[in-house]
């Protein structure tokens, strides 16, 4: 209050500064926005460019008229002679979005559930081996999956567990859990301990406290960890490839790889497929982002 009164006389100057600051902020945001979207714009342009536009020198930045045939092929199918685009390939792409959604959501849910428990334990409780156990966990995740595929395939095959999305979910969870634990532990560490202390003194159990005190405060961290897991899983390639086989179980990464042919790759189609494949997660993220922001502001006001 005192500070405000002191600069009261410079109100006009302050207003100017505020406007300038707002403009500067918008400029910075535009910078970030361009960083993200410029390469993506090229992807979108490639997906709607006609064959001639795709090959024009210098590039035609706005392909006109836009050619949506890549999208219609992907969504409505049909075989195109002289390309990899057999009916089988195109049909598989449509299933794949659903499968990836199931797998990514499942892994995210499991990783968050187990990750919250273990992450909290590592952040706050005394563990048998302490941090060394955490590094051991991490070592597991860091062994490149390529050398584990063959023994894992043997096990799954012996138990008759091939070609099931559930197995893909479990395997990916096991692979990504260590790092999710790390992420969540870090966010838990940044939450002040006194809140818990109060709850403990009040006689709450650990789990009750985790649920009612810690989790609400850790929402941004949970969100970040969730996004990380979802994205990693959405992008997983080798495990879905090796452990599923029927076309109704194929995930989107594998389906897109099918457009890379023996000799020819259809850039327009791959671009369109890339755009379509990133739409569902992007929409999810935008939806949650808005929700999260609203929730946080509400919480901050009340807090």
């Amino acid at each position: 209050m005192i500070a405000r009164m002191e600069i009261g006389g410079l109100l006009a100057a302050r207003r100017w500064r505020r406007i300038l600051a707002a403009l500067f902020q918008i400029l910075l945001v535009v910078g970030v926005f361009l960083f993200i979207t410029l390469p993506l714009a090229w992807l979108v342009i490639s997906s709607i460019a006609s064959p001639a536009d795709l090959l024009s020198i210098p590039p035609r930045w706005i392909p006109w008229p836009p050619d949506f045939s890549n999208y219609s092929h992907l969504l409505f199918g049909g075989e195109i002679e002289g390309t990899t685009l057999t009916t089988v390939t195109l049909r598989a792409f449509r299933f794949s979005l659903r499968n990836s959604m199931i797998v990514a959501s499942g892994v995210t849910a499991l990783c968050l559930l187990f990750g919250v428990l273990a992450g909290y334990a590592f952040a706050r409780l005394q563990m048998p081996l302490g941090d060394r156990l955490l590094y051991l966990f991490l070592l597991v995740q860091m062994v490149p999956v390529i050398v584990l595929l063959i023994p894992m395939f043997l096990v799954m095959s012996r138990f008759g567990l091939l070609d099931r999305l559930e197995i893909v979910i479990l395997l990916l969870t096991a692979f990504h859990l260590p790092f999710v634990i790390w992420i969540l532990r870090s966010y838990f560490l940044s939450i002040p301990v006194d809140l818990e202390e109060a709850a403990l003194v009040d006689g709450a159990t650990r789990l009750q406290m985790l649920r009612h005190v810690i989790l609400p405060l850790a929402v941004p961290g949970l969100f970040a960890a969730g996004v990380y897991t979802f994205m990693q899983t959405w992008n997983a390639f080798m495990i879905p490839l090796i452990f599923t086989s029927s076309e109704t179980k194929r995930t989107v990464t594998v389906a897109i790889a099918m457009f890379i042919g023996r000799h020819y790759t259809e850039y327009g189609l791959i671009s369109a497929a890339g755009v379509l494949a990133s739409l569902p997660p992007a929409l999810l993220a935008i939806f949650f982002q808005r929700y999260l922001l609203a929730g946080l502001t509400a919480g901050a006001v009340k807090g």
Partner: peptide, 29 residues
């Protein structure tokens, strides 16, 4: 800033593009 949720949502897109698509995109760039 205006449209904050949208811009933050877009943040994830580069990361979710499958590696093959990323590779082809950059090879086209």
């Amino acid at each position: 800033f205006p449209l904050r949720g949208l811009v933050r949502g877009l943040l994830i897109v580069p990361w979710i593009l499958p590696g093959t698509v990323q590779g082809l995109l950059w090879s086209r760039i």
